[in-house]
Design a protein around this nucleic acid. Structure first.
Lengths: 190, 190
DNA sequence: CGTCTATTTGAATGTACTCAAAAGCGGTGG
DNA sequence: CCACCGCTTTTGAGTACATTCAAATAGACG
């Protein structure tokens, strides 16, 4: 198994010695998911935090009326889970699917909690991750509130060009909170 | 000074001994802000993280066309800052104002960074805070994407009844991402 | 090649905005 | 204590942004 990517990610934030590294590696498991596979389904227990080594995932939510909203795309070197349910031991509210064949590392909640105790440095690592996730979501809220769909689409293309290449327009539309038909109209008007 | 509220908040997540408590207390400063005072202005350096002991704050953003979007309201026992700029040492993108006479504790970024080193338990404390902030923002994104304004307004009233009592309708509208006129229409139609 | 899904097109509709103005409300000074 | 000022909230008409529904077209995959 190739741990280079994930260990480098960690090394950018905290230094780990050999023993700590080994312990961490012993707590994560590797899985491959073919395109279209579901990693998580609404209602399931969500006790896994996933790291994308390669491929791409999409987290989405289906509301009462059946409308799908994309919460996030996860590309290589990203962590993803239904964080609220993962942290609070609640049944998942969201779906997570592979939008490409994907190689994923996963850690279980109980192992993560133990990791915090055995190697407290990981508190810092995940604090930083959570800070980044928080500020990213906040920026997205601001964008959603203050920009019309067309500019949100342009921003999306600028910010995530690699994702835009991989996903369908329908999925982008559901990330932006508009219908595929309207996104199509936006694209035509450019 | 009355540190009970803030120390209790911390105690709910991590245990501190006397020495650690004293050190923390020595790093925070107390300030009062009268209603309408600005704690932070766009463009200013944002090197303070604020905790609301009493009163209420509002963080907002003004876009290119002059439109104001409320990012968050902070009521007693909440932490608030322009997190992105605080963490990255960038000039502030947002404004933070007191919407009531408010008592605030503040910690400077450098002191916080030192606190993490001297009392690593605070890594855990702020990790948990950041997790909660992240999942809250994510929930808000989902709501904004999937619900019409009327339901977002009802949710807001349910979730933050105490805030709804304190702020103007204009401020609520700007939190929901709609115009005051439209919020007024929504209210009439109830 | 045929089937399934993604994307586009267009018409009709609904949701939310702009602008202008009136009404309500709170504070302040005479 | 009243009159006035400034700001919030409401109202209404006209408009723009975004959706729904139905159907045509284009692409992807077995």
């Amino acid at each position: 198994m190739n741990y280079e990517l994930i260990l480098n990610n960690i090394a950018r934030h905290i230094p780990l010695d050999k023993e700590e590294t080994d312990y961490f590696v012993s707590r994560i498991t590797f899985r491959e998911f073919p395109k279209k596979a579901l990693l998580l389904k609404e209602g399931q227990v969500c006790n896994l935090l996933s790291y994308v080594h390669s491929g791409a995932l999409r987290a989405y939510f289906i509301d009462g009326s059946g409308k799908e909203s994309t919460i996030m795309f996860a590309v290589p070197d990203w962590w993803v889970t239904d964080m609220y349910c993962f942290l609070n031991g609640r049944p998942a509210m969201m779906y997570i699917e592979a939008i490409e064949n994907s190689c994923i590392f996963q850690i279980r909640k109980e192992d993560l909690d133990e990791l915090y105790i055995k190697v407290p440095k990981f508190e810092r690592y995940f604090r930083i991750l959570m800070q980044n996730a928080y500020t990213r979501e906040q920026l997205r809220v601001i964008e959603n509130l203050s920009l019309p769909a067309k500019e949100r689409y342009n921003n999306f293309l600028d910010k995530y060009p690699h994702i835009a290449r991989v996903v369908t327009l329908k999925q982008i539309a559901s990330y932006l909170g508009i219908t595929p038909e309207f996104l199509s109209a936006i694209r035509k008007s450019k």
